[in-house]
Nucleic acid binder design. Structure first.
Lengths: 110, 110
DNA sequence: AATATTAATCGTAATATTGCAATATATAAA
DNA sequence: TTTATATATTGCAATATTACGATTAATATT
């Protein structure tokens, strides 16, 4: 026990969970907010902005990348990370769906 | 080490991370989808729907409740769980903001 | 009060995540 | 090719999460 029973859920459920999980850490929220706020997207600048060591930031960037929420490209000697819009669209749509269903349904029985 | 450095991040960043993290498990996505799909919202029905034991489901429900994504009320002998709209609004707004910023900025340098 | 039913909590084992120092890799410049 | 700079990977310790059997708590019915 201890491992998530991934096989017992649908691909869609697992995919949404992976996207949400990737944003389930304040450092990773901070990275996204930084990428939105600032012109640059150089990895080093992200490391400087966050109160975490370079390997830790690198790990968080990797998780965001694996989830499909950011992408990275070489920019000379450093790497430029950008938000990957399709990933955000996917999870935003889920939340939008929830809201839409709620308005249609008004199933607030509690 | 091993513990998230919560103190190093803003309240907003931590709050968004808590909301996202709560949905970062396929069982909890499944619970939300079930609550949207179905008329009933009785805890026992959720337990029957999910491929997990009752204590495990109860734990997942607790996490969703703590994050402010669902709420529960006694309905006779059982408990009725419903989606808590304000929680979903909050995290949907975050994603909507990201999308809006992206359209304004077109900072796709990668 | 005794019983049945429903859901929460406890205890615990298995696994995953977080964070960082040390090290490795990769690219650019000299 | 050496050196400098930027980022990734490794290894590991601390902590958190996931899952479930056993038990408890709480309410409803008899």
């Amino acid at each position: 026990m201890g491992a998530t029973k991934t096989d017992s859920f649908s691909d869609r459920q697992n995919e949404l969970a992976i996207l949400a999980k990737a944003l389930g850490h304040p450092a990773r929220i901070a990275i996204i907010e930084f990428l939105l706020k600032v012109e640059t997207c150089i990895c080093g600048d992200i490391v400087n902005e966050l109160p975490l060591a370079q390997p830790t930031v690198s790990q968080h960037l990797k998780e965001l990348k694996n989830a499909g929420l950011i992408k990275g490209n070489f920019e000379g000697t450093s790497i430029c990370y950008c938000i990957n819009e399709p990933g955000f669209e996917k999870i935003k749509d889920f939340f939008q769906d929830v809201i839409n269903h709620l308005e249609k349904k008004k199933n607030e029985c509690c």
